[in-house]
Structure formats: structure tokens, C-alpha cells
Amino acid sequence: MMAAEESGDASRTLVAQANAALAARARWSPLEIAFWLAAAASIFLFPTKHLILTEIAILGLFALSLDLLLGYAGIVSLGHAAFFGFGAYAAGLLAKYHVVNEPVLALLASGIATMLLGFVTSFLVLRGSDLTRLMVTLGVALVLREIANRLEITGGADGLQGIVMDPILGRFSFDIYGHVAYVYSLIMLFALFLVARRIVNSPFGLSLRSLKGNPLRAAAIGIHVNGRLVAIYTIAAGYAGIAGALLTQTTQFASLSVLDFERSADVLLILIIGGTGYLYGGLIGAVLFKLMQDWLANLTPQYWQFWIGLILVIIVLVGRDRITRTTDPIRALVQRATDRVWSGVRGSG
């Protein structure tokens, strides 16, 4: 009796500890809050740059989706554009043939359609090692691209022309300056980020990390590995699909380039620049990558790809860690300040 009670107590404390740890992870740090305040401020600070900012927000969402796969579940993919492109065409077709006219609903519908595709293809990804996964994801993207190229309904290489978007919620119509498009994309990004943040800080997210670390051991302690992988793959596909749908809705156009291999490669690069496994990597990478690309392409329209390549090589050689190490003391300071504020809040509460 005593022993059973003791072990009951022990497991209860363990659960409490785990919950406390998860809660600590889920706490908002001031830098995170500052990030989103800065994002909101960009609406008013850079009104002439909303077009490229919209693209950055969409790219950030796309990279966030890959981060869920790569950073949390350890699934490598070279064909993530398959879902991006599928969502893009889904949104385009929904609008063009007036199936769903309201953009937000159409966005959700495209996301759900892409989740279905993700669910079906996830079973291919369950098999084999990283190398097989690279090949399988790449293959799926190539197959989809060729289908889009062949079908009459997608317009082939000419792209999906003649998409006209209805106003958002029937009130806000897309303008040529891209103001509405940017606010819309940013809100969607933030909403989906909140969901992603909730997911990775839940016990489910924790189990993903454990199976990323060691799938055999995770299975041994009773985690249903394949089930988790299918779930996160489906979710990530939905995220990518919504990113693609946002692109179509804001540009009122979709072309084969949404399914290009370059797009899958770019998003992987972005994630490598920004870092994986903390959700902000994709967003930061998208900001840096796109601004750098835009800036260089304006400086030298002919040779910008050379400079991008060079900079990427330097980033990888020097290593992000070495760059960030120089800022360690500041970070430590912020950390200490945060802890104090939080303990103060808790003490008074």
C-alpha cells in the first residue's frame, strides 16, 4: 500500500514537473513580444514596402511550416513546394470558378485540401531514412508540377490567369498598393504562428522532439511514432498550403513557379539561415533572405545570384553560432531581467 501511494505521489510530482516545464517553455519572452510589435509597426512604418513585406510574410509562413517538420520532427524535405503549390492552385481555382468567393473561407478550404494531400503522402515519407525521404518528397513535388503543367484547368506554363478576388469578409478589397494584402497576410501569419506555438509547447510537441532525438527509444516508452509523424506532416502540409493560397490571393495569379524545385530549395535555405527548432528561424530567415535578394537584385540585376551564393557560403562557413556568440552577454542580461520580471509577477499574483 505504502509503496503504491509513494509511486502515485512520485508520478504526480513528475507530471507536475513536466507541466511546469512545458509552461515555462510556453512563456512569452520580451524579445518575442518585441518581434511581433515590430511586425505590426511595419504596417505603419513602411507603407511603400507592403508588396515585398507581403511576400516576406508568406515566405515566413512557408518556412514556419517546414520548421514544424524539420526542426521538431526531424523530417527532411526537398519537395515542400508541393504543398505550397497545391494550396496556391487550390485557392486560384476556388476563386476563378467562384466555388468559394470569400478569401478567408477559401484560404481555410485550400489549407484543408492541402492537409488531405499531406495526409495521403505522409505514408510515403514514413518509409526509409533521410535520403529516401529527400527523394520521395522531391518526387512528389515533381509529379505535382508535371500534373499542373499538363492539365487544361491550371493553364499549364501560361499560369492561372483571370483570378479576381472578392473583398475579405465582404468589406476589405485588395488594393494596388498591397496594404490590405499585407495586413491580411500578417494577421494570418500571426494566427497560424500562435497555433504552431501551442502545438510545439504541448505534450504532443514534446513527444515529437523525443522521437526526433531517438525514434527507437521514443517507441519503447510508448509513443506511437508513425502516428505522430503522420499528424505533424499533415499539419505542416496544411501550413504550406495556406502560405501558397495566400500568395495566389494577394497576387491574384498562380503559375508553375509555385511548384518549382527552387522554391523547395529556397525555403530550406531560409530555414538554415534563420535556424531550426524555435519557430522564429523561418520568419527571420525569410526577412533576411528576401531583403538581401531584393537589395542585391536592384544593385546588379545581372549578377545578383553570384552575390547571394557567396553570402550563403559565408554564412554557413562562419556559422550562425559564431555570429550570435558575440551577442551572448546582452542576451544573458535580457534573460536575467526577464526572470526577475516574471518572478515579480508571480510573487505579487
Binding site: 519572452s29 524579445l31 518575442e32 518585441a34 518581434f35 515590430a38 511595419s42 534563420g274 535556424g275 524555435y278 522564429y280 528561424g281 527571420i284 526577412v287 533576411l288 531583403l291 550562425r320 555570429i323 550570435t324 551577442t327 551572448d328 546582452i330 542576451r331 535580457v334 534573460q335
Partner: peptide, 15 residues
């Protein structure tokens, strides 16, 4: 976590 978040500050500056 926080170490990476500082990259974010740099990104904002560059932006």
C-alpha cells in the same frame, strides 16, 4: 532559445 531570439533583433535592424 533566447540566444536565437537575438538574431531577431539584428534582423529587425537590417530590415
Amino acid at each position: 532559445m533566447l540566444r536565437r531570439q537575438l538574431v531577431l533583433g539584428l534582423a529587425a535592424g537590417a530590415a
